[in-house]
């Protein structure tokens, strides 16, 4: 998304062009136009636009894309931390937003 941007230079998205077969799945599934197709291969056009949803990596047939996927949601992250603390473990489930 060009209109709204979060922090720069932080996402874990990795792309290995040597493994790309040019199927275009990443370009299709990405909701932020992070990839483009050029000369029969994917091109990482806007790395900082990535929100680490993991759609491209999951739909890549050759594992040319690697990303630590997850939801960019403060509550989910907070509950993840709290659930790692002995006593609070019973009160908080990790990844507990939107449920």
């Amino acid at each position: 998304m060009k209109e709204f941007r979060h922090l720069e230079n932080i996402v874990t998205l990795e792309y290995h062009p040597d493994k790309c077969v040019g199927c275009g799945a990443c370009t299709t599934v990405c909701p932020h136009g992070v990839f483009n197709q050029e000369n029969g291969k994917a091109l990482l056009a806007d790395r900082d636009g990535c929100m680490e949803c993991g759609a491209c990596a999951l739909n890549c047939p050759t594992r040319a894309i690697v990303v630590r996927s997850g939801v960019g949601c403060a509550q989910a992250i907070l509950y993840g931390w709290l659930s790692a603390i002995p006593f609070l473990r019973r009160l908080f489930v990790p990844d507990a937003c939107c449920s």
């Binding site: 941007r5 979060h6 932080i10 909701p31 680490e52 949601c73």
Partner: peptide, 15 residues
């Protein structure tokens, strides 16, 4: 951030 369609896990973790 959890309601937006553009923040990443790494970005929210950092902030």
């Amino acid at each position: 951030t959890g309601s937006t369609p553009f923040t990443s896990l790494s970005g929210v973790d950092r902030e």
